[in-house]
Amino acid sequence: MIADYLLHLADNALVLGQRNAEWCGHGPVLEEDIAMANIGLDCIGQARMLYQYAAQLIGGEATEDSLAYFRSAPDFRNYTMLELPQQTAFAPSANVPRDYSITITRNFLFSTLMSLVWPALQHSKDAQVAAIAAKSSKEVRYHLRHSTDWMLRLGDGTALSHQKMQSALDYLMPYTQEFFTTAAFEADAVQNNVGVDVAALQDEWQSRVATVVTEATLQMSASTGHLTRGKEGLHSEHLSYLLAEMQSLAREHPGAVW
């Protein structure tokens, strides 16, 4: 079951890394293009360390690549929020241009969470989890700083940027309920002193988010409504498309190396 917990952390990092990497070559300005590629790279690096360790625990023929490229959507344990496309809610088609408000708001909500989770995981009873958390803690603070700056700049910006950021927040906040609803593998990991009790971090997270949202002159949105269960394998329709793109090369040419 610890492997499930590791896969949850790894899938979160990989799926968000893949989404952020979609901006590579398409960023709104050069600096942001580079920033998104860098943040995506950090996430994918974190995912690799976690998959390598999970593969070791799972044993058999499992490798970091088999876990990343040869599992299907229902096997993925990431939060639903992280797989959503960069388009705004109810975008009529996949041809709608990506919207940076979604990217920034999602990175902000998730980085705020991981800025609490990674430092806590440094006290994990599992030495390898603690070691991975120590590295990831150093990286997430730069991710949070980046998204926080843009929350403020765009929220407290023009009428249009303000309105877009508010819409993004209203759209994404309900998905954050999933962070604080404990899945069986999380309860197990907490019980074994390997994982952290994310539900116990909710108040701290809420207050960190509210501080920035207020400073950004935005209204805190309600996190109510449908509770997503991506981490238990019940995903939105978007994950399969993301995986199709990400996994196609490895599946078409198994064992391909650069």
């Binding site: 800025s115 997430v140 603070r141 949070l144 700083r145 700056d149 843009w150 403020l152 407290d156 400073e215």
Partner: peptide
């Protein structure tokens, strides 16, 4: 200070002084 180009007026006016290893430190 924050990145000047991106800073809002309220941020520019506010002095922040927190250690870098605090993940919530606003320093950039």
């Amino acid at each position: 200070s924050r990145v000047i180009q991106f800073a809002t007026k309220s941020i520019a006016a506010r002095a922040i002084n927190t250690p870098a290893n605090d993940p919530f430190s606003s320093q950039t």
